[in-house]
Each structure stands twice: as C-alpha cells, then as structure tokens.
Design a protein around this nucleic acid. Structure first.
Lengths: 339, 339
DNA sequence: TTGTATGCGTTATCAA
DNA sequence: TTGATAACGCATACAA
C-alpha cells in the first residue's frame, strides 16, 4: 500500500518548497489557488497526515494525558477510566494508562517515565503504599515542573492541586441512617485499613450517624479486613460472634463475601441482616438478592477529572486557584435492604 | 522547584557544546573524565532526563503501544489489558488505550489518530460492529504502512498478522462433555449473535460434543441473546418452556442472569440444572453457588500479545512469517456443576 | 578531547 | 505568491 508520506516528500514530488506545502495544506491565503489545489489533491491521494511526534516537539504539547490508577480490575476504577477516556477523546486527547498496582515504586517510576515529555498532564488516584508512606515528593516535583495534576478519589491534603472526590462521609451517613430508619440498631461496618483516606471518611459518616441517633458505638461491630486476602473465616467469625442487623461495606467485594456467609449461616437478607455496599458494580447488580449500593458515579468522576485537567492545560492564565470538585454519591436501594 | 532542563541549558551553563553534553551523559570515551564528571554532576543535580518526544522523533520509534479494545468494564478485556500493560512496562513501553465501544467508527478514528506517529504498533480486539460489517480496510492500510498489528480474541482470517486466540472450540467441547459425563442430556447453549466469531467457535464445540455423544441437536435449546440488553424475560421464557439439565453460557453475565432466574423458578443449581460460564471473573467467583467457568487466562493472552508485538517491532528481519498463538483455556469446576 | 553540522517533521518568521 | 531559515531536543558523523 501507500507508505507514510511527509511534507518533504510532497515538496520534492511537486517541486515546491516544504513551507509552501505546509501553508497550502493549512489553506493559507498566501498560496495561490492553483498551487493549493495541486498540493491538496496530491496530499489527499497519498493520505497525508502530519506526524504527531513532530507536532508535539514543535508545539511543546503532546495531547496525551497520563492516567495512573492502582488497579483496573475493580469496577470503580474501570468506570472512572472510561469517563476519562471518553471525555479526553472528545477533546482530541489520548490516554496513556499506567497501573501502579498499589505500589509506591511503580507509581513513581511510571510517572517519571511519562513526565519526560510524553504527556501534558496527569490524572491519578494514589496507590495504597503511597498513602501508607505518606510520601508525595514525586507529585511535588512534577507539579513544580509545571505539569498539571488532578487527583481523584484517593487524594491527599498534602498536595495542592485540582481534585475530584466523593462525598464519602455524607453518603456513609445517609446509608447508616437508612439502616436506622428501617429499624436497625446493631449496625456493622466492614472496612479496610485506615490509611485509605476514603475508608476513614466513610467510617466518620457511619460513626456520626450512630451518634446522631444516640446509638452507642460498639468497636466490636467494626471489622477491618486486609486488602485482597482470603478473609472468609474472619467474616464468618464476625457474624457468628455478634448480633448484627445491618452491614455497611466499603466495597462490593466485601459485601458479596459478607452476603454469601450471612446466607450460609442461615440468616436472611435483608430480613435478618441488611447490606449496603459502596461501588455499584456488576457484583452488586447480579448478586441474589441484588445489593443496595452507594453509586460512586465513576464515569462522572472521570469526566470531571479530565475536564479539570484539560481546562488547566489549555488555560493561559497560570494562576487560577486549585479546585476540589465533590461528586455526590447516590444510594441505590435494591434487594439487600428493607425499603 | 527545578524546572525541566535540556541539553542546551546544561551546555550553556557549563560553557561547552551540546554534543559534548550529550556524549558525556552517554558516558562516551571521547570525553575527558573531568568534563564528564562536571557535566554528570550538573545533570544529576538538575535531574536531567532526555525528552521522550525528541528521542521519538530522532529514533523514529515512540516506545508506545496502542491498545484498542471494545470495552473495559468486562472482566476478560480488563485482564488482557493488565497483561499487556505489565509486559509492555517491563520492556520499557507505554500503553495508549482507546475504547472502541463496539463501534466501527471509533475503532477506525482512534487507530488513525494513533497511527500518525504516536505509536509503534497496535494490539487490538475487533469491535462488534467491525465484525458485523466485515470491513477491515483500516487494518490493511496500517499494516501496509508497516505498522505491526497483533489481533487477540476477536480476530479475523481476512487479515494476515500475528494473532492470539483461545482454543474456543475445544474448551466448549470439553465443557459440554463435562455436562454429558455427569449425566446431562438436555444441554442448552446461551450465546450472542453469530458475528462474534468466538461465539461461533464455541457453538461449534458445543455441537460437536453433542454429536460425538449421539445426542440430537435441538435448536430450541440454543438461546441467542442480544448484546447488552435487558433480557431477563427472554431467559425466563426459555427455562420455563424447555426441560434443561445444563447450560453453557458464552459469558459470565449471561450465566449469572440465568442462574438467578433458574433459582427464581424453583430449580436447584447444580442438582437440577448445571451451569458453566465463559470468563472466570468476579461474578463467577462470588456468585452463590460459585460458577464453574472456562478460564480464558486473559493476563496470559495480553502478555503474549505484547510479547509478539514487541518482538516484531524490535526484530530487524522484516519477513518473519505471521504466527497465531493459541491459549489453552481451562475448566474451573466449582459449585454450579456436579463434579 | 571538543565542537560543528545535519537531520528527524513540522511551523513560523522573514526575505525575495 | 513562494521559498529560505530557524527552531523544538536530541544524537551522531565528521571536522578541528
């Protein structure tokens, strides 16, 4: 087939200068109609397209966005990514994805690799290890170099940049209140280690709903599960040992694990125990009964993050103050709660 | 903080030429130790990193791989992507992802956008629409331009390139045979429209297992569901109308939908009806009972695809013949079958 | 041992 | 109306 063709090739073939070709293809009024027609026809025939790399070098902008996420198998990140990709594509940007795999080193290495000219800006959600170490020098350096960064979901107050987060505390409050309204008082929380700031906010919401309703907090009703481990026996113990009316889970995997064990122990969902899960994914939708969930609207988060990033990258006035956008989660009531 | 620095900046600052700096940083023996030390120290202090874009332009290779997939929320594609990303990263490549969203146009546009210098090669799985239209001119053009392409899973024989596929027919045969071995004879197949070539292969495997065991094919036991629709009522009708012992589903969503309805109709899984699902994802793992599945080993497919692509991109001898690698699926026996 | 010139593909400025 | 030149950041063949 036709090989890739450059301005130079066209110029040589048509016996004009490179700059004439360039101008003609940009429809510059400097060039005569005849010449333009000739050049355009030739370019069209050989399917000329300007080389992105050369443009990037010249313009000092790549039209690439770097996205760094801890994980892609989890429904939430998947949907955020989809939101980013969709919006970015509409705006003519491409998306380079790196998976940090919850590792600090991978996060740092990937970002440094991309920061050397490959991308114009970053969208990222902090890895577990980064949150644990509380070390953000890599982010500070990138921002110091003038690379715009947008953090989403797993953010940190240590870094001053644009952010998109969920109203975690409020929605956890709302979910807990929903349990209480339907008569529950022994309400459990199944959560992750605390260095995930989102888990902390959710716990706050849970706690404040209890206290608002004058329900004493029972620390035994808070189950902290290790991330990504086989934890069925912990869960089984938990539900055997304590009388529980309702459970709020910080993700849907915990929730289905809990539900399966609850049923196995002979309890009915939602009659004996109600469940609400964060993340409105496939697991929740297709479980039996289907799970009531907190919809995090990942698509919207992604879209907003991309929007904020692109706006900042394209804005000329440097010193717009950083914003934090809050996405409002919504409670989706399905089969695992009494509504 | 320190701003991004270039060779030129270093040269000016240290009052040497750009090429001296370039050579020094590459540890060239041409340059005296003193000069090298001085330059290296300076570069290190200012955290000099060569600009990827400039390197790409010079070397005519970007170290970027373009990945085009129909969808990212589906577990299979997610795992394939993870495999690609992991391997590519190890080899120093970045991954630019585009989601075709099952649309022919998006597939074409995205690929053309990336093909203008942004990437060195493609890994893709055909969109539904592309398979339906059977139009592959965009692929032919890219390949004609010398851009290497690796197809995975949803491939086509129309295009001559490297491919990675699953042994769909064989594993569908094996799954069906497993049903038969455990005493089933009224075996159903729940599948998608036929223009998905993988569905066709799976159907072939299913049919040949039946005929091998002298079980008459009953077309009424094959349910073709539209992709991505609310199809509960179709499924309910299907299981009401026909006496069925076992169901093979071409994806796990269909499988959990079937299972939920089967249970709702008062049947027991696996005692009354056994189920096997393609895709060993979260849904299968956490359903109740957990689903027996065909593990497609997406990670491995992704890794192999990346490996084939990178090998081809880096190989000097142009004319190595194209290969098709076949990944062997494995049957994972869990709670939805009698084992 | 160091520096100059050239080129990768493009655009913009200025000259003809 | 067209063309020559410089520049983006880097690497390298060649000259000094």
């Amino acid at each position: 087939m036709k090989p890739k063709i450059t301005l130079k090739d066209i110029a040589k073939e048509l016996d004009v200068s490179i700059s004439t070709v360039s101008k003609a293809l940009k429809n510059s009024p400097e060039i005569s109609k005849d010449t333009k027609d000739k050049i355009k026809a030739f370019a069209k025939f050989y399917n000329y397209r300007p080389n992105n790399i050369a443009l990037s070098l010249k313009n000092k902008r790549t039209k690439n966005i770097g996205v760094v996420i801890p994980d892609i198998v989890h429904h939430f990140f998947t949907t955020v990514f989809r939101g980013i990709e969709k919006y970015a594509n509409q705006k003519g940007y491409n998306v380079i994805v790196c998976i940090s795999d919850e590792s600090f080193d991978k996060e740092v290495i990937n970002m440094e690799m991309l920061a050397n000219g490959s991308i114009d800006g970053f969208i990222l959600s902090l890895s577990a290890e980064t949150q644990l170490k509380n070390d953000f020098t890599h982010l500070r350096e990138l921002i110091g170099q003038g690379i715009p960064v947008v953090l989403f979901d797993r953010v940190t107050s240590e870094i001053d940049c644009d952010k998109v987060i969920l109203n975690d505390k409020e929605i956890a409050f709302e979910a807990t209140q929903h349990f209480i309204n339907s008569g529950a008082s022994k309400i459990a929380l199944v959560t992750t280690e605390n260095y995930f700031n989102v888990s902390e906010y959710r716990r706050d919401g849970y706690l404040s709903a209890l206290s608002k309703n004058n329900i004493a907090v029972d620390d035994n009703l808070i189950l902290t599960l290790p991330y990504n481990m086989e934890n069925d026996s912990l869960i089984r113990d938990f539900f055997k040992r304590h009388k529980i009316d309702a459970v709020l889970c910080v993700n849907e995997i915990f929730a289905v694990q809990c539900m399966n064990i609850i049923k196995e122990l002979g309890f009915e969902v939602p009659d004996d125990i109600s469940i609400i899960a964060f993340t409105n994914g496939m697991l929740s939708k297709y479980s039996h009964p289907s799970l009531s969930t907190v919809a995090q609207h990942g698509d919207i988060m992604g879209e907003r993050a991309a929007q904020m990033l692109i706006r900042r990258m394209e804005s000329l006035e440097e010193e717009e103050p950083f914003k934090t956008e809050i996405i409002n989660a919504t409670l989706i009531k399905r089969g695992s709660t009494i509504n």
